[in-house]
Amino acid sequence: MQIDTMTYGDTLVVRLNGELDHHTAELVRQRVETELDRGYRHLVMNFEGLAFMDSSGLGVILGRYKRVTAGGGAMALCAVNDQLMKLFELSGLMKILRMYPSESEALAETGVA
């Protein structure tokens, strides 16, 4: 799992490359938490390079959603493929998370691009 982060104003962008499962979930969780601790308010997660995800990934996403929204921020996902979308539909996450085709569109929505 390769995790790249970028920042735009008070928005943190996380790009995941690899497979998000129980084995890599803790790594992703810790990295995003560490970055959010620096004071970023909004979070955009880019799944363009994500080759696989299971319910462990849903747990990581839901956990970050709770933290970001509790702090008054917004969270958005981008580049979500059909397979990922099925997991978001099943879990009900699709109803609470904003999804955009690309990172730039997600950033425009959080008001920083």
């Binding site: 319910s55 849903l58 099943l90």
Partner: peptide, 21 residues
Amino acid sequence: PLFTSKPELERSGMGFTIMEN
């Protein structure tokens, strides 16, 4: 769906639901 015995581990509780679907 959404039941987990380990919420402290951020488990989503979706494992069996995914298998069924």
